[in-house]
Design a protein around this nucleic acid. Structure first.
Length: 698
DNA sequence: CCTGATACTTAGAATCACAGGT
DNA sequence: ACCTGTGATTCTAAGTATCAGG
């Protein structure tokens, strides 16, 4: 399942400017740090003049970051009400249109649905407005004292998945050709496997072995005696039944689907929210994870193991002492009820496969998550003000007499320049073999004195988080190169590259340089600053919206490439690309035709004052124009999609890019925000949308 | 120091729902 | 009106970071 990466980017679109350098390192940094030819000393060029310093956007102390912004609320409300006016006018004109059509169309069925649509739309808008009014503007409030996450917390506890429903009698499991009626527990686990039969997982040796081992634990003594070989198991009927069920669910009538939807809505209403300090907040994962087979990523040694059903007896509840304590399901008890307001979770349990803790926490649009997110970006912005000093320091440290210090300096260089993750050590054999910066081993890099016309090239090839391959060839400074050679001396495959360094030491050092600074802050900082720079370089206020959005996506893409955010190319990619291309072709033909007609109309109208001809001419002109616009839009879309084939933009958008950069860009470029942020994102970043002025600088 | 526990963020895949084309 | 491809949402694994306690 390792995905190979190739960044062969498309040529420019229609000869248009395309300034993105698709290089997963920070080019500007290379420009700013020069290496002296012989002894490898470093000089950092002054670039203070370039950087805007703004006391309002670069707060000096973290306590100043969370000053309530009372004044803005008034402004925002004004804006809000005018927005409402506009919407009302829009709605009225729509209603008029509907009425007009009523007169023309005698068919009664059609107009009713149209009315219904209009009504539904109106309802949606109304709901939106209400939601906006209900929103907790926590960013205008004082922060709590350190470590206190809430003062009041009340909830209904997690939602448990439905109990297992035994197989109907006509669906049988066969072992060695003979039908075997399994005990309930064994049957449930058998079904987990049967449901996954179409998946590649079930063909893997490790998966199958782990599964059989855990399955047998669930069996009765007799079953265990009988079933010893997975290859003799025939899950065919169970598999067929499952597929049938999926199909049936898909083919439910509209009404039945509606009923299901309403039932889910009811569950959401009851369990999906909590009260936190007088505000109703959405919970992110209120459903207990159902039992199933563990699906690790990559070559996970535990893939296929049974993930057991969680009982209330396994769950710890966290809530206010004086709140209504959630009721466990009838006949059950909670493992524990505690009242710890220094943590943000509402419930937790220990998962049996890895022995790790799972938590029920709030949604991303909640105060608790939002505040933390805001803080994260403020720390990253603070790094901006001292990153030059930190860079000179680690360049200096490359020369240190202490091996540990040198290793730290090189690691930091990678983390900064290549946006690598910190790389905590992991327990061997418990997880897939993946690494980050500090856990790199000698086999993960290859040193080339010269490669492709460049000197001192480091070739990286390793599996990172989620077993995503990181492959990159990076020219580095001589000093770094020499150090790497030194670190690799007398080591063999399997040895740590940085044997005197771990993430703990690295972070301790970083925190001493700047409060709150850890390795991951560099990723946030470099991602956000790259977006800002790319947006500045790529977008043009005279472009149309489609072109501006392409620029935005390209800036976003530069960040995704830097952070190595990948996705599997969509299964339908080639097909959908071809169909888009076909559409473009047909639109081109249309355009040609329209152009011809326009020429003809011009000829006819020449010298004539016949108003009919002139009107016709105008019409033809408009057709040509419209065709051209549509064609351009499609071509832009095609380019965008092709470039995005295996790059995931969403992860950086959601986790690394300071939303205020995007909000300010939208305001400056007059691009509607919803072209860039969907509803979820707008919800999550409500704080940024509310507080950001067009002049915001990261 | 080191180690395991704890709490929280970040991540891609799977699944769902709905917009836009026919 | 219906179908389907796509973007949104859900799911949960896999990271980072810190801390208590030996």
């Amino acid at each position: 399942m390792i995905m190979l990466l190739k960044y062969n980017y498309l040529p420019n679109l229609c000869g248009r400017r395309c300034g993105v350098e698709w290089n997963r390192s920070l080019l500007w940094f290379q420009l700013n740090v020069k290496e002296e030819a012989d002894d490898g000393d470093f000089v950092t060029e002054k670039k203070g003049a370039k950087r805007k310093r703004d006391s309002a956007t670069c707060p000096s102390s973290s306590s100043a970051l969370f000053v309530p912004v009372k004044k803005k609320k008034v402004e925002a409300e004004d804006e809000g009400s005018s927005g409402v006016e506009k919407k009302k006018i829009k709605r009225e004109s729509k209603e008029q249109k509907v009425k007009k059509e009523e007169g023309e169309l005698p068919v009664t069925k059609k107009k009713r649905t149209k009315e219904e649509i209009a009504a539904a739309r109106a309802l949606k808008i109304k709901k939106k407005e209400e939601e906006e009014q209900q929103r907790w503007r926590w960013w205008e409030e004082e922060k709590y004292e350190d470590g206190i996450k809430w003062k009041f917390l009340e909830h209904k506890g997690p939602y448990f998945p439905p109990e297992y429903q035994p197989l109907p009698d006509n669906v049988k499991f066969f072992y060695d050709g003979k039908a075997v009626k399994l005990s309930l527990a064994a049957e449930e686990v058998a079904l987990f496997f049967a449901q996954m039969l179409d998946h590649e997982y079930t063909t893997k040796e490790v998966f199958r072995n782990n599964f059989l081992k855990d399955w047998r634990k669930e069996m009765t003594l007799e079953e265990r005696m009988l079933i010893t070989d997975l290859n003799k198991c025939d899950f065919g009927e169970l598999h067929a039944m499952h597929k049938q069920k999926v199909e049936a669910r898909k083919n439910l009538s509209k009404e039945e689907k509606q009923i299901n939807k309403e039932a889910n809505q009811k569950i959401l209403e009851e369990f999906g929210y909590c009260m936190l300090d007088h505000h109703r907040e959405r919970i992110g994962n209120f459903k207990i994870e159902p039992p199933g087979l563990f699906r690790g990523r990559g070559d996970h040694p535990k893939q296929g193991m049974l993930k057991k059903r969680i009982q209330p007896e396994d769950v710890i509840i966290n809530c206010s002492r004086n709140s209504h304590i959630p009721e466990p399901p009838t006949g059950h008890k909670w493992k524990e009820v505690r009242h710890d307001n220094t943590v943000t979770w509402l419930a937790s349990w220990t998962e049996n496969v890895q022995g790790s803790c799972k938590y029920v926490m709030l949604n991303a649009n909640s105060k608790l998550k939002g505040e933390k997110d805001w803080e994260k970006y403020e720390v990253a912005r603070k790094l901006k003000s001292c990153v030059d000093a930190i860079r000179s320091q680690y360049q200096e440290d490359l020369k240190s007499k202490q091996m540990g210090t040198r290793q730290r300096a090189v690691a930091l260089y990678f983390i900064d320049k290549l946006a690598l993750r910190a790389g905590n050590e992991k327990e061997e054999g418990e997880t897939a073999d993946t690494v980050g910066c500090c856990s790199l081993r000698v086999e993960h890099i290859t040193l080339h004195d010269a490669l492709d016309g460049e000197t001192c090239v480091v070739e990286f090839d390793f599996l990172g988080k989620d077993c995503i391959r990181y492959y990159n060839k990076v020219p580095v400074s001589k000093r770094v190169f020499k150090n790497l050679k030194l670190f690799m001396e007398n080591k063999q495959e399997g040895d740590d590259l940085f044997d005197r360094l771990n993430t703990n030491m690295l972070n301790k050092h970083l925190t001493s340089l700047m409060p709150g600074l850890t390795a991951k802050v560099f990723r946030t900082y470099n991602a956000s600053i790259t977006l800002q720079q790319q947006l500045k370089g790529l977008s043009n206020s005279s472009d149309n919206v489609a072109e501006k959005l392409l620029s935005y996506n390209r800036a976003n893409r530069a960040v995704a490439v830097l952070c190595n955010h990948q996705r599997a190319p969509p299964k339908t990619f080639e097909q959908s690309m071809a169909s888009l291309q076909a559409k473009i072709e047909s639109r081109k033909e249309q355009l040609e035709l329209a152009k011809k007609e326009l020429k003809l109309a011009k000829k006819e109208a020449k010298g004539s004052s016949d108003s009919k001809l002139l009107v016709m001419l105008e019409k033809k002109k408009k057709t040509v124009q419209r065709c051209e616009e549509q064609l351009l839009k499609m071509e832009v879309q095609a380019t965008d999609r092709e470039e995005n084939k295996q790059i995931a933009l969403s992860t950086s958008k959601l986790n690394y890019l300071d939303p205020r950069i995007s909000v300010a860009w939208c305001k400056n470029m007059e691009v509607p925000l919803d072209k860039v942020y969907n509803k979820t994102l707008r919800d999550k970043f409500a704080w940024a949308i509310d507080m950001t002025e067009p002049d915001f600088v990261f």
